[in-house]
């Protein structure tokens, strides 16, 4: 479980628009890395290149290398479907499948991967829901639709769904931005717990959140409108928030812009 990600010279485009330019960084396993930066700086786009979800958008493409331990996600012959199974993702808005029960939502990825035996499914579903700190709240209504849960519960359901297939990496795209403070706290606790097993990357708008949950922080910025987003610096969270090397980082952290 949990692999190191090494990105080098990565560019991403939407049609003719250069969205992010020349990003290189290392993401350590069994830790939480937070991406921060002003809106439109390309942090979400970058996140989506890490499990090849970027190319799902028509006209979008990626250049560069993303090594997961010793394999290039963009290497020849690599199936993006296989990549996404190994690198799970949680989205900004909770998106459980509306027609499925809580149980089926968690089991969806497993069934795709050929797990058919009921007892095995039951075990993994329970394990995943426990892993997502949701088991106690839903164990009596596993067959109810997932859409009936509260927003925070839905988001934890989505996390359970993502970890049920036991990925190496978990990407989270502003997972708390649609949640109330109490639900946010629950998800943050969960992230702290999950990092012992997974490589976690989280995009957040909320600097306090980045400071609370992450071990390392990367700051992204754009030089101006229409220019591609760039990585300004990455380092230990404590250092980024106290003694950043770049002036732009400091200005953003202290709230002078963004």
């Amino acid at each position: 479980m949990a692999k190191r990600i090494e990105v080098s010279g990565l560019h991403a485009y939407y049609g003719g628009v250069h969205a992010i330019a020349d990003i290189s960084m290392t993401i350590e396993p069994r830790s939480v890395t937070a991406f921060i930066g002003p809106s439109g700086c390309g942090k979400s786009t970058f996140l989506r290149t890490l499990n090849r979800m970027h190319e799902v958008i028509p006209g979008a493409r990626v250049e560069g290398k993303v090594m997961l331990d010793d394999e290039d996600l963009y290497g020849p012959g690599v199936d993006p479907v296989a990549v996404r199974r190994v690198v799970g993702m949680v989205f900004q808005r909770p998106n459980p499948f509306p027609t499925m029960s809580i149980y089926d939502n968690v089991a969806a990825g497993l069934k795709l991967n050929g797990v058919r035996r009921k007892s095995r499914l039951d075990d993994i579903v329970e394990e995943s829901l426990k892993g997502a700190n949701l088991w106690n709240e839903v164990k009596d209504r596993l067959n109810k639709p997932g859409a009936g849960l509260s927003g925070g519960q839905q988001q934890r359901l989505c996390i359970a769904r993502a970890i049920a297939v036991q990925p190496q990496v978990l990407l989270m795209d502003e997972p708390c931005s649609a949640l109330d403070p109490i639900s946010t706290l629950a998800v943050e606790d969960l992230i702290a717990k999950l990092k012992s097993q997974y490589t976690i990357v989280i995009v957040t708008h909320n600097m306090q959140q980045a400071a609370r949950v992450s071990d390392r922080t990367a700051f992204f910025n754009i030089a101006g409108i229409g220019k591609p987003g760039k990585l300004v610096e990455i380092g230990d969270t404590s250092k980024i928030f106290t003694k950043p090397e770049q002036k732009a980082t400091e200005e953003y952290i202290t709230g002078r812009f963004g």
Partner: peptide
């Protein structure tokens, strides 16, 4: 909704599996 399509793809669904998980139930 795009969110459902992406949810399926992010789980590691092939195109057909994405259609089966997200599109067909929604459009039934």
């Amino acid at each position: 909704p795009r969110a459902h399509v992406e949810a399926a793809l992010a789980l590691g669904a092939t195109r057909w599996e994405m259609i089966r998980l997200a599109v067909l139930p929604y459009g039934r």
